[in-house]
Design a protein around this nucleic acid. Structure first.
Lengths: 190, 190
DNA sequence: CAAAAAACTTAAAGCAGTTTAAGAAAACAC
DNA sequence: GTGTTTTCTTAAACTGCTTTAAGTTTTTTG
């Protein structure tokens, strides 16, 4: 049930069988159908989500109410609204299942207890965040330094399963252009 | 000498006078003149940098050799190339002083020892990274959802000292447009 | 303080990507 | 399995920002 997340944690910090049990006692599994929300704009963000299977997207709304995809997470990725997680403010973004998705949740309120019981989880989350932050800066780099076409070619080369699993209009939004333009790119070649 | 960083750490985790001393024993001060590099592309990233005073920028190079500002850091911000910090790979980005800058460095090699001596620093860095990551996603949000003009107006309203201290062509690069266009915006109004 | 370098401005021509609108195809629900 | 909704396509008109190029101002340096 929790093997994937246990394996993930063990890639970063050691965990005895007993400690594995402790960790598991803090985990909850949740199932989300396609298009169901893990978090809706304006709600309180009550947990950290580990994608056990499936795909989710994080998005923000602009003034016209258009949804902009900020981030995808697939199996093995953590996702949460860190912006409001620590502040008890209502979320400014939504998190939604793109396909049927199984999520492992660590509740915000219980996280502190877990970190006291298993201090190495503090290190685990630090290391995971270092990777996520680096990836976010790399995304910024790609957005600035490559044209829409280059971004699309790069993305479909490096994450072909994504292009399969995720509707094109969400890929377009993530890459920062319109679905119509993506359609044009596809017509042109590949 | 290290009051600013001590105060910063204490905003997130407790630190006894003795522990303060331990922390300080791991810190080094470095001075950088304007335009000097903390890190150059291709070098190994050997530390984490806390800006004690001054401003630095992180940038990447595109294929044409044009520098793109990915990130600024002022007093009280940490900056490092997390992408290569943990991997011992040569850096893909540069970090440069924008004005005369005082940096507090934690050496990569010594960081592990520090974290063993002061486990709460693990928590400190996690919390700092959560903020940095949230800010990076927020930047992505602004890039996607606002026009170049809106981004400039928002930036100069919220970070007026920045617009004073940082050359315009760097602000333009950070906001994702050309210096010529920024000039045009300024001519138009304010 | 004079010379050189760095930073900023202006304006015209150009284009990458958007907008709009309407139709086709695929996925979903009953 | 048929009706409805969602997703994808095509194409023409449009626009926000870039490119280019030349000139001006400011800052740096010996």
């Amino acid at each position: 049930m929790f093997d994937k997340i246990i394996a993930h944690v063990k890639r970063f910090v050691p965990l005895s069988p007993k400690e594995e049990e402790i960790l598991c006692s803090y985990l909850k599994i949740e199932e989300y159908a396609k298009k169901k929300h893990l978090l809706e704009e304006g709600e309180m963000c009550t947990g950290k989500y580990f994608v056990n299977s499936g795909v989710v997207r994080m998005y923000t709304l602009n003034e016209k109410g258009v949804e902009q995809v900020i981030h995808f997470a697939i199996e093995g990725w953590w996702i949460t609204d860190y912006f409001t997680f620590n502040t008890n403010m209502p979320a400014k973004c939504g998190i939604q299942a793109v396909e049927p998705t199984q999520i492992i949740v660590i509740d915000a309120a219980e996280q502190e207890e877990l970190l006291k019981e298993l201090p190495q989880m503090e290190r685990y989350f630090r290391l995971v965040l270092e990777k996520a932050y680096a990836a976010s800066l790399m995304r910024t780099h790609y957005m600035f330094n490559f044209s829409a076409e280059e971004r699309y070619r790069h993305f479909s080369e490096h994450y072909p399963e994504f292009v399969q699993r995720v509707p094109q209009y969400l890929v377009a939004s993530y890459l920062g252009f319109t679905p119509e333009f993506l359609s044009m790119l596809r017509a042109k070649k590949g």
